[in-house]
Design a protein around this nucleic acid. Structure first.
Lengths: 337, 337
DNA sequence: CTGAAAGCGCTTACAG
DNA sequence: CTGAAAGCGCTTACAG
């Protein structure tokens, strides 16, 4: 592949000028030589080597993204929104998929540090992700979920407890007398938030109410298997609110297999609110996360932090909250009121 | 961030030795100095700079992936399978999402060339993707869809025509008398393959049969909108076979909105066969692509090509076919025979 | 406006 | 077994 030297030679100038032309600076180039350089570059199919550029420039113009599960459409949508926001700033988004495997997450962290990404957006599998490698490399990180107050990273997230409460309260308001929570893994931080929100709504009901919690992984397969057992019990819930849309799809599938009609026999609410939720059968009532707003703000924060390394300490104090929205559709049977 | 020089200084040795230690070669290092280097590296949190390494080594240990739409679970699953295969070979997979936008695809191609990925796996939005930039940079590319015979890339793909015929033939065999094809954009190469397979099955039916084709984008939203109009017509089909699972989900949604029961009033078949298809309501009959096998083979081919640049000409002649499999579930009403 | 040269952080023949 | 030095392909003060 042609190098800047080759171009300089063909254009009868120096590599410095080639660089000035391709970067529009930092020095001016006369129109005539600029023409010659461009012509030579075109003839040789010259593509600047981004590795060499980054090595001497000190920035890679690259943002790393780590997601737990790219096959989950929520993270697919999130990745797309982040890439849109990154591209607008001329940054490339590198996507690392942890495949629900903590070891994978660790490897992506290492790979991003070694490749010197300018900054990182992270959705960790772990309750206490290990930010140490990024911290040592002075790479700013923003987590899109709650993190410890003293964690060396920023965070931007909805208030899961409040959002979970809103979903459960919706079911309470519509007089269901037996409400279930299909939560994530029982001891995770995220499950604790959903549980607290759910229980708060139950406590506020002001009437007798049976309620119950079950736990499953985030996959449809797992959620379906758990729901199949749950819904076969004599005391099965009349309504179920879930910690993710994926789990809600599993509930819908289990209900189908058992011949339960949704919403007539079972009301269902999801959580996350991807575009796909509108096309579920029946369309899914869900709590929508403002994915595009979160993505745009996350990239903005992280790009600023990368540009002003001096403010690193301030950046790791950032704890921003985004709003959520309950979208009422057919799956909970309350769409008309 | 600490450099190899810092480590060498602290360990009282040279940068060459640091490199030998971290790469296990190409020269031996005495156990004593190796210890000292490792200790110094640990103390300084040394992480080799992959950019500098790649620049001098001439390889980035990186494979680029371009997909049309990462929010489509099929490509999510594909990306995951490819990353698994890449990691097994110690390569990092960089994922570029074209967001159904050809301009985006072009930018990813440019970014991959500039970053000097060792090779590329590509699912293009376009019928005739532009491989020129990769060819000029001598970067081997494998497309996971059919490409022109003289295209400067390898390809590995199922036989879409055969697979589409199998799906349609299944409906023919089960005596549906009015069968529709919900195809992709009418004039694309892919739509042509689905159409030929579909029409072949119709021709082989050996009886009177109404059939019809409609076209939609790959999104659920678009497929649902098109289906809504189609299924409201008096001559609506009794069965629909689709070019993608995403479109089939759109059909299921439209049927739901119109109060049509699947499969009693309308049989539906998808195409691609992601894990999610099993959890549709009702579970989706679909043509499964062997995603993991395709991913493993694609990475194998591309890694070999990158290792032996001499065989570049041979590599671009590779046109491999993978098998497909019809998975019969409830959505076509034929699950019991 | 332009060129010669140092430097980014590695790897690897070349000497010893 | 180890060190000094050249080179990978850029960018950018430093001179002119």
């Amino acid at each position: 592949m042609a190098t800047g030297r080759d171009v300089a030679q063909l254009a009868g100038t120096s590599t410095a000028v080639v660089s000035y032309v391709f970067n529009n600076g930092p020095r001016n180039v006369s129109p005539a030589t600029r023409e010659r350089v461009l012509a030579a570059a075109a003839e040789l199919n010259y593509r600047p080597n981004a590795l060499a550029r980054a090595l001497s420039f000190g920035r890679t113009s690259t943002i790393g993204l780590i997601v737990p599960d790219i096959a989950n459409p929520y993270f697919g949508e999130l990745a797309r929104a982040l890439e849109d926001a990154a591209m607008e700033r001329g940054e490339l988004l590198l996507i690392g998929d942890s495949s629900l495997d903590p070891e994978r997450e660790r490897r992506h962290i290492a790979a991003f540090v070694e490749r010197r990404v300018d900054s990182v957006v992270m959705v960790s599998l772990l309750d206490e992700p290990d930010f140490a490698a990024f911290e040592q490399a002075s790479i700013p990180v923003i987590a899109l979920h709650p993190i410890a107050d003293d964690a060396p990273a920023a965070s931007l997230t909805i208030d899961y407890e409040l959002a979970a409460r809103a979903a459960a309260a919706h079911l309470v308001a519509h007089d269901f007398d037996s409400i279930g929570l299909l939560n994530g893994p029982a001891h995770s931080v995220g499950a604790g938030q959903h549980r607290r929100g759910f229980l708060a709504a139950m406590a506020e009901a002001g009437r007798e109410l049976r309620h119950d919690e079950r736990n499953s992984g985030t996959s449809r397969a797992d959620a379906s298997a758990v729901s199949l057992r749950w819904l076969a019990e004599p005391e099965r819930p009349r309504a179920i609110t879930c910690a993710t849309d994926e789990q809600a799809y599993g509930v819908l599938h289990a209900a189908y297999l058992l011949g339960l009609r949704v919403p007539q026999d079972l009301a269902v609410i999801g959580f996350d609110g991807t575009e796909h939720s509108e096309y579920a059968v029946p369309p899914l009532t869900t709590v929508r996360q403002p994915i595009r707003a979160i993505a745009a703000r996350a990239i903005e924060l992280v790009a600023e932090a990368a540009a002003e390394p001096a403010d690193g300490a301030d950046f790791t104090r950032v704890r921003e909250l985004a709003g959520h929205e309950l979208i009422v559709r057919a799956s909970c049977g309350c769409a008309e009121g």
